[in-house]
Design a protein around this nucleic acid. Structure first.
Length: 525
RNA sequence: GGCCCCAUCGUCUAGCGGUUUAGGACAUCACUCUUUCAAGGUGAAGGCACCGGUUCGACUCCGGUUGGGGCCA
């Protein structure tokens, strides 16, 4: 920064019980900006809506931010010099400010009923002229107020907006944006019941918390004039604004919303992501309320076993880029290269496939031990290993993870390999796979033959297994691949999996023999 | 409906008047590898919304149209 004022930025989520991807992207950009400028990143809670004012509604938001490594310097749980950071606890201050606005003539008591306002609006529309409240029920003196109150009216407080001239905002992302004051309505800032409205609270908090840059989604751009008016009316310095493009839904430019799952499910890529999550959730006994457990929410990614760095990298690039080729950024690189100037103005659609590509990339960077550590908790939750896992289980898992390689794309994918953990006599067979590969007499004969030779094998290792498979397929005149599929189904119950020799080596000779016997004995149903 | 924002391959984007036969990534397709699945390798296809200006020269600047989105209702 050229000037020497301290950079202080904030995000101001409502406690909605979940952390939305769009909010995380905004949080990330704010966080990067703050850290780059050695400033402060503040978390403020917009909990003016009393129904939402519950601690358990806030927890998922804090948890999600922490998981992504987006730490806040002031706010819930960490406090700070401007505490409290909850709007619900600051109503006294809002009352003060409204009084001051009233005294300065920048706001007024208004005794109009909503019907009367609607009436004026209708009339204006009928005449095709710009609607401007007549201020007929405005009370600027005690006498006027008494008169309206005598009629049984109750006052709200409205902003007394300018009716001429224009406002120019120099937005850090959008550049020069102009508004005509006369098109801004006399917005209510305090309702008749005494509660305060968002725009008032936001401005007061941004001022009181000494926010230098308001970096937020574009949906707030249209609301900026009335906020600037409040700043100016009070003689407060106006912060710099940066309006980020919204994160849009897959295949459209519309804002990503948690309430449109049904629509998004029609997108095959999105549906695939959901299905992957559902598979894992089922295996680990997780209740899957669509409110929280859906790819619009950060919690989904955490629960399913995504890597935070993958999500961060993907989100960083959703609306920003460094150049024409750099795709992968460590946190340090992001800190070094991020800039608001390079944030794009257009909405960016969320692309599940691309996110997954980042996830695969970062998964590939992990060492075997790290992957095992990530995967083990899923096995515990699925009841496949003890809690904590014993050394034998850990070693088995290690071998599986190694053999599976990049097939495990998210940590929870380990549940695809449940067959290695269950007892041999409890192995179940996929119907279709069994029908195809263990259905004929010829196939069963090969299983029997293989079993026979396996038990006589001098050395039991991958190489010998490969050789045995090759020998038998040659002798029986079947393709190696076909024999392998038959054996794979016999030993794992499924037609898909990693290398057969790896599979058998991990299982060990005894377990293979037991499973081959079971395949031969179990009646087809 | 009014105001505001936005507009390069399907998607995310590079491009800030000539270096561009418009570059990269994801996705797609083909080939390859292959014991299923996944990954890998090689290659291909695919875009400047439209119309006017400005200029010797426009993806790039300006205006409009169209389209998309946001906010207020």
């Amino acid at each position: 920064m050229a000037d020497d004022t301290t950079v202080r930025v904030r995000i101001a989520p409502s406690p909605t019980g979940a952390l939305h991807l769009g909010l995380v992207r905004t949080a990330l950009y704010n966080w990067l900006f703050a850290r780059q400028h050695k400033g402060r990143f503040i978390l403020r809670i917009d909990d003016t809506d009393p129904v939402r004012n519950r601690e358990e509604m806030l927890e998922p938001i804090l948890r999600g931010l922490r998981w992504l490594g987006i730490d806040w310097d002031e706010g819930p749980e960490v406090g700070g010099p401007h505490a409290p950071y909850f709007q619900s606890q600051r109503t006294e201050r809002y009352r003060q400010v409204v009084t001051e606005l009233l005294e300065r003539g920048a706001a007024y008591y208004d005794y109009a009923t909503p019907e009367e306002i609607a009436e004026e609006r209708k009339a204006a529309q009928a005449e095709k002229r710009l609607f401007l409240y007549s201020r007929r029920w405005m009370a600027e003196t005690k006498e006027q107020a008494h008169r309206f109150e005598a009629e049984g009216r109750k006052p709200a407080v409205r902003l007394k907006m300018p009716r001429e001239g224009r406002l120019v905002i120099d937005d850090l992302v959008r550049g020069r944006v102009e508004f005509e004051w006369q098109r801004e309505q006399d917005q209510v800032i305090q309702r008749a019941d005494g509660t305060f409205l968002y725009h008032l609270a936001t401005v007061v908090d941004d001022h009181d918390f000494a926010i230098s840059h308001v970096i937020r989604a574009e949906e707030h751009l249209s609301n900026t004039p009335r906020q600037v008016f409040i700043f100016q009316a009070l003689g407060w310095p106006v912060p710099r604004f940066a309006h980020l493009p919204v994160v849009a839904e897959p295949g459209s430019r519309q804002k990503l919303s948690k309430r449109k799952m049904e629509k998004y499910l029609k997108n095959p890529d999105f549906a695939e992501l959901v299905e992957r999550g559902a598979k894992i959730a089922r295996a680990i006994g997780l209740k899957t309320s669509p409110e929280v457990f859906n790819p619009v929410m950060v919690e989904f990614y955490e629960r399913v076993g995504f890597l935070p760095q993958a999500l961060v990298n993907y989100l960083a690039l959703l609306g920003w880029s460094l150049d024409d080729r750099t795709e992968f950024f460590t946190r340090e690189e992001l800190l070094r290269s991020f800039s608001l100037e390079r944030v794009i103005g257009a909405a960016a659609s969320f692309d599940p496939k691309k996110l997954m590509a980042f996830q695969v990339h970062y998964m590939l960077e992990l060492g075997l031990d790290e992957k095992v550590a990530l995967v083990l908790p899923y096995l515990v939750k699925a009841g496949l290993v003890h809690s904590p896992p014993n050394p034998r289980e850990t070693e088995l898992t290690r071998k599986i993870v190694e053999a599976a390689g990049d097939r495990i794309k998210v940590a929870g994918d380990i549940v695809d390999y449940q067959e290695f953990y269950i007892e041999d006599d409890r192995l179940s067979y996929d119907r279709a796979a069994r029908a195809e590969w263990l259905g004929s007499a010829q196939q069963l004969k090969m299983v029997a033959l293989f079993k026979e030779r396996l038990s006589q094998m001098a050395r039991f290792d991958r190489q010998e297994l490969e050789r045995l498979i090759a020998d038998i397929s040659a002798a029986e005149g079947v393709k190696t691949g076909e024999l392998a599929q038959t054996l794979r189904v016999a030993v794992t119950g499924k037609a898909i999996g990693f290398g057969l020799a790896d599979t058998m080596a991990i299982l060990g000779r005894e377990r293979c023999l037991a499973r081959l016997s079971r395949a031969l004995e179990t009646k087809l149903t």
